[in-house]
Amino acid sequence: MTSAAGQSPPTARDSGLVGCRRCTRVWPIETEVCGRCGHALQSRDPQALQKVWAWWLVGVGCYVPANLYPMLETRTLVDSQDATIVGGAVELALHGNWGIAIVILVASVLIPVGKFLVIAALALGVRYRSGLSERLRHQLHEIVEYIGRWSMIDVFVVAILSSLVQLGTLAAIRPGQASLYFALSVIFTMLSAQAFDSRLIWDTDPAPKPAAPAERSPA
């Protein structure tokens, strides 16, 4: 790949072309479907940011009940208790399990909240020229896309615990309401991050006005 250092390479859009985001094949900009892989082509989706915000809002909306309802309902011979995400972590910390408490807080609070903030910052950065460099914003997006899936681990742990700890009257764990909301929140946040088109970060020029079909006269 040849490109002068420090100078931004030409983009497919600048060259009147559209690149397939699935298979990287290049087509004339008015092409609608990639002839190689069949993926829908769009140089820039004018509604991309709206989709990001829509998924983002539902994601945040689901994250609130995920923290209010219990994640796990534990019943043992002596007592039964409902633990919310934060409550469970505090409990562990009080029992001296600082390490796990911190892991849980990072995985279920710090990372989800961080994801919401980063996606919002990325979407706002496209609309209102961000002060952060393109490289940094691009890396943030890659990190959010990579880390997003890993938040599902909480839901899996609840699933494993509640299938495993079914010991009749001795001990039983049941999934709480929050596990459902938490799973939905993770899924919606993933969709929000996927809807964000990282090419928008690099578009310093305003998008060219879409040419009316009539202007593109057949050769």
Binding site: T2, T11, A12, L17, V18, G19, R25, V26, S198, W202
Partner: peptide, 12 residues
């Protein structure tokens, strides 16, 4: 040609 799917840079 190849277009970077992440940033739209165009390369030969």
């Amino acid at each position: 040609l190849i277009a970077c799917p992440r940033c739209d840079a165009l390369y030969k």
